[in-house]
Amino acid sequence: LLPSFEIGAWTEDDVYCWVQQLVRKGDSSAEMSVYASLFKENNITGKRLLLLEEEDLKDMGIVSKGHIIHFKSAIEKLTHDYIN
Rank of each mutant, 00 (worst) to 15 (best):
E6M: 07
W18C: 00
T79D: 06
V15C: 00
I69N: 13
W10F: 04
W10Y: 00
S4L: 07
K65D: 10
R24C: 11
L52N: 01
Y16R: 03
L49C: 00
R24Y: 12
Q21T: 10
Y82R: 09
Y82I: 07
I44K: 00
G61F: 02
K25R: 10
L38H: 08
P3G: 15
G66H: 13
K65A: 08
G46S: 03
D14C: 01
G8M: 13
L78E: 00
S73F: 06
T79L: 08
V15N: 11
V23G: 13
E6G: 06
R48W: 09
S33M: 09
M60P: 03
D59I: 10
G66S: 14
G46F: 07
S64W: 05
S28I: 15
I44L: 00
I83Q: 14
E41R: 11
G26F: 13
M32F: 12
A74W: 05
D59M: 12
S28V: 11
W18Y: 05
G61L: 02
I7Y: 00
T79G: 10
D81S: 09
L1D: 15
D27H: 10
M60S: 01
N84F: 08
E53V: 09
K72H: 08
G46N: 00
A36L: 01
I69S: 13
H80Q: 13
E54W: 05
S28F: 15
I44V: 08
N43E: 06
V19A: 06
L2F: 13
S64H: 15
A36C: 03
S73L: 09
E41Y: 04
I69K: 14
P3S: 15
E6H: 05
Q20Y: 04
F5L: 11
E53N: 14
A30Q: 15
L1W: 12
M32L: 14
E53H: 04
Q21W: 05
K40V: 05
R48E: 13
V23L: 07
Y82T: 12
D56V: 01
D56S: 03
I44H: 01
E41A: 11
A9N: 13
Y16F: 10
E53T: 14
Y82H: 14
S64M: 00
S4P: 12
Q21F: 09
D13Y: 01
K65G: 04
D13G: 02
E55G: 09
E76I: 04
V15S: 03
L2V: 13
M60N: 02
G66R: 14
A9M: 12
S73C: 08
P3M: 11
E76F: 05
D81M: 08
V23Y: 08
E54C: 00
A9I: 04
E76R: 12
I62F: 07
N84S: 13
V34I: 07
W18D: 04
I75V: 04
G46M: 09
K40Q: 02
H80Y: 07
K40E: 06
Y16A: 10
V63N: 12
G8Q: 15
S33R: 07
N43C: 10
I68Y: 04
S64F: 04
K72E: 00
S33Q: 11
L2M: 13
T79H: 14
N84Y: 11
N84L: 08
R24E: 10
R24W: 15
L1C: 11
W10K: 00
I68V: 09
I75Q: 05
F5T: 15
K25E: 14
V23K: 14
I83P: 13
F5M: 15
F39S: 01
H70L: 10
V63R: 11
E54M: 01
A9G: 10
K65F: 03
I7Q: 05
G61R: 03
V63P: 05
D59S: 12
G66D: 15
L78Y: 04
G8D: 15
D81A: 10
M32W: 15
N43R: 14
A74F: 04
Y16V: 08
F71H: 04
K65I: 07
G61C: 00
A36K: 01
S37L: 04
S64I: 11
S28P: 09
D27P: 13
E55W: 04
A36G: 08
K25S: 12
V34F: 15
L38I: 06
A30G: 11
V23W: 07
S29V: 11
D14M: 00
K65E: 14
E41F: 01
W10R: 01
G61M: 03
N43M: 08
G26A: 07
A74S: 06
A74Q: 09
W18N: 00
K40W: 04
D81R: 10
L57R: 02
D56K: 05
R24T: 11
D13A: 04
N43S: 09
M32K: 07
E41Q: 14
T45W: 00
L2T: 15
E76D: 12
S64V: 11
D27S: 11
E55C: 06
I68H: 01
E6N: 11
A30Y: 10
L57W: 00
L2P: 09
K77Q: 07
E6V: 04
F71P: 00
Y82F: 05
D59Q: 15
V19W: 06
S37F: 00
D13S: 03
F5N: 14
E6T: 07
P3C: 06
I68N: 01
S28N: 14
L49G: 02
S37P: 12
E55R: 09
G26S: 08
Y16T: 05
D59N: 12
K65P: 14
N43F: 05
C17R: 14
I62A: 02
Q20F: 00
L49S: 01
S73R: 14
R48N: 06
S37D: 15
A36M: 04
Q20W: 08
S64P: 05
K58S: 04
K77V: 04
G46A: 00
L78G: 01
K65R: 11
V15M: 00
A74E: 11
K77L: 05
C17G: 08
A30E: 15
K58I: 10
S29H: 12
I68T: 05
E54D: 08
I44Y: 03
R24N: 14
S33G: 11
D59W: 07
F5D: 15
I62P: 00
I69L: 14
G26N: 06
F39K: 08
L52K: 00
I44M: 02
H67V: 07
L22N: 06
G8F: 08
L22R: 01
M32A: 12
R24S: 13
K72Q: 08
M32D: 04
D27A: 13
W18K: 00
E54S: 04
D27I: 14
Q21R: 07
R48S: 05
E31M: 03
R48I: 06
F39Y: 02
L78W: 00
S73I: 09
G66W: 07
F39E: 08
K65H: 11
M32H: 05
Y35E: 00
Y82W: 08
G8E: 14
D14L: 01
V63A: 11
G66C: 11
S64N: 15
N43K: 14
K77M: 05
L57K: 02
L78P: 06
V19F: 05
W10Q: 09
T11K: 07
I68K: 06
L22Y: 05
N84P: 13
E55L: 02
A9F: 06
G8T: 14
R48H: 04
K65M: 09
L1V: 12
E41D: 08
W10M: 02
D81N: 10
I62S: 06
N84M: 06
L1K: 09
G61N: 03
D13P: 05
G66T: 14
S33D: 10
D27C: 11
L57H: 01
I69G: 12
T79W: 08
I75T: 03
E55I: 03
R48Y: 00
M60D: 00
P3F: 11
D59H: 09
E31F: 03
E53G: 10
H67A: 13
G26L: 14
R24D: 14
D13E: 12
A30K: 15
I75L: 02
Q20G: 05
A9D: 14
D56L: 05
G8V: 06
L22V: 09
I69C: 10
S64G: 07
D59K: 15
I69D: 15
C17F: 07
E31T: 07
Q20C: 08
K25G: 11
S29F: 10
D14V: 06
M60R: 05
M32Q: 08
I7C: 03
I75S: 02
E31L: 01
I75P: 01
S28D: 13
I44D: 06
S37I: 04
K77Y: 03
